[in-house]
């Protein structure tokens, strides 16, 4: 009888230990579950930085400078490489655009610039109207609207006749739609519209439509390859000019983005590369070039000794 009793006791003890162990494991899982359930999912999870630069190659990306960040842009395209060794493959020549870009509230980007081509000034506003996000709302794409005006400031060819200021103006409107598929791959579509107040002949189009597509793939954290194509919708412009194709890469280093590219467009403002691309890849009318973006923060900054 005594023997039996201890046996039962033993079984009983075993049971208790077993349950105790079970409850401990259940319990430690519980703690993690509890923590997970406490996490606040009400704030949206934005997919930021689809592109490193405010342009992909020549064309605008959906990105704008961060809030109160002032970005200085230097862009340059050399001459065509098919000119051969005489101009050192185009290095002797080139066009330049200098510009500033400023970000407000991570939603609005304002930019001004001047290109050497036809002494063109440009001013633009880019507004992020949708931000790609998950969480409460599921928005699969970022959408930015881009509106630019270009002012040609070359002296009038015939100053004696009546020249209107409006003749100097042209405009570009783009709907930029991008999606960051993962940390490396981002793609963008850009339906675009260009309006020119004055065109050389009555046959030339005042209103030109094009569709742009581009993307980037990050090979390392600070290096990506980029590509971009603008397809002109059929018309006189599409007959006279080429579609813009640009291939390049981004290198990011401490507040700078360097974009180095080969493209058949020599012009660095939207009207130029969308509707006035003259180079043909097949004939070697390719221009090497670069964009350098330097970001300055204009708000307060914690410096040592302050």
């Amino acid at each position: 009888m005594v023997h039996r009793k201890t046996e039962i006791m033993r079984k009983y003890l075993l049971f208790i230990i077993l349950i105790f162990l079970c409850s401990i494991t259940v319990f430690s899982q519980d703690l993690d579950q509890i923590v997970g359930s406490l996490t606040d999912n009400s704030s949206p999870d934005y997919a930021n930085a689809a592109f490193k630069g405010t342009t992909i190659v020549n064309g605008q990306s959906t990105e704008i400078p961060g809030h109160m960040d002032l970005q200085f842009n230097i862009s340059h395209r050399f001459g065509a490489i098919n000119q051969g060794i005489y101009t050192l493959f185009g290095i002797d020549q080139g066009t330049t655009r200098l510009g500033f870009e400023y970000g407000l509230k991570d939603i609005v980007g304002l930019s001004i610039g001047r290109s050497t081509y036809e002494k063109t000034y440009d001013g633009a506003i880019k507004v992020k109207v949708l931000r790609q996000q998950t969480g409460v709302k599921n928005i699969p794409v970022t959408v930015s609207l881009y509106q630019a005006v270009f002012i040609k400031t070359l002296k009038w060819e015939e100053p004696d006749r009546e020249n209107l200021f409006s003749s100097r103006l042209s405009y570009a409107t783009q709907i930029l739609i991008s999606r960051k598929f993962n940390r490396n791959l981002s793609l963008q579509l850009a339906p675009s519209y260009v309006h020119k107040n004055l065109v050389p002949t009555p046959e030339d189009q005042n209103n030109i439509f094009a569709i742009g597509a581009g993307g980037r793939y990050k090979l390392t954290k600070r290096f990506s390859i980029n590509g971009e194509y603008y397809w002109l919708l059929p018309g006189k412009t599409a007959d006279d000019f080429a579609n813009s194709l640009g291939l390049g890469f981004d290198i990011e280093a401490a507040g700078h983005v360097f974009q180095i590219m080969a493209t058949n467009s020599q012009l660095m403002f939207a009207r130029g590369y969308i509707t006035e691309t003259e180079g043909k890849w097949s004939e070697g009318d390719i221009y090497f070039g670069f964009n350098i973006y330097r970001v300055f923060h204009t708000g307060k900054r914690n410096k040592k000794g302050n």
Binding site: S28, D45, N48, A49, P65, G66, D69, R183, H297
Partner: peptide, 28 residues
């Protein structure tokens, strides 16, 4: 049993000296 578990979603850090710095914090 004095066990604990804590979590911070790393994206939720705000501050920094510029918005670009925050982007680099998250991205790089």
């Amino acid at each position: 049993d004095r066990s604990f578990s804590f979590l911070v979603p790393t994206k939720t850090f705000e501050g920094f000296n510029s918005s670009l710095q925050k982007t680099h914090f998250n991205e790089d």
